[in-house]
Design a protein around this nucleic acid. Sequence first.
DNA 1: TTGTGTTTTATTGCCTCC
DNA 2: GGAGGCAATAAAACACAA
Length: 265
Amino acid sequence: MKRFNSSDPLAAFISISSSKEERTEKTNQGYSRGFQSMLDSLEEEDYSEAASHVGEKKRRLNLHQVKALEKNFEVENKLEPEKKLKLAGELGMQPRQVAIWFQNRRARWKTKQLERDYGILKANYEALKLDYSNLEQKNEVLAQKVKELKAKLSEENVDSSHSVKEEHRVSESDNNASVHCKNRDFSGNNNPSAITKDHSNISSSHELMNLFQLSDSRVILGNIYQVYQPHLMKPEEQSLFSTEESCNFFSVDQAPTLHRYFPEH
DNA sequence: TTGTGTTTTATTGCCTCC
DNA sequence: GGAGGCAATAAAACACAA
């Protein structure tokens, strides 16, 4: 087990100060303001205390030592034992001090790296959120257009459906469509009661229009998603947006026949 | 001057590797 | 089993506002 060599704790704390030229050398190497001021004050302290320092207290490394350690860390963030001994000798430090400095420096670097990664992830998330918001707006516009077209179509059907014979023919066509989708509900479950049951429960045309809107929005949104970022869809959303389920309710190829849902027309 | 927050240096305990 | 790395933490040094 490694443990601190307590035979000479004094020596571990006393760092030999470097030359006056080295110590007075000002640095602008991108240290934080706090760190820089710390280094500055450290230099002054070194001046007055280095030679005669009483060493029980924890001491900070001088500027020369820190700069040399930083330089070595840039080259390699882990030290070979030989390099550690060499560096310790050059800087007047205990090898263990050098090792501890590198260890702490790696920890600081890791923290910074995590902060950077978090920033990147956050930026990506914000961009994605913006994309999603834009898509929602487009979807609303498209849904509104669909709603208008349906209303228009409904009016046309009312105008052209006076003959009983015509009504009968359309009714048959609707029955076929009903058979086609009667085994499907909105969530993709094979629940025979889902759609047909809804039919019986829908009491007003207003509810019905909402039903259509919901369904259409999902189709449109689903198609946009599939074209735009298909890999971002959750499995359950892919199921929800699957064209087979939605098309049977409102197919693009076959315009919806609203007669069934507007029997009064 | 003092309280408080931040940074740096060092220790401890655990883990992995050889 | 020893050496070394890492996470958590203590403690000293330092900055700074009130």
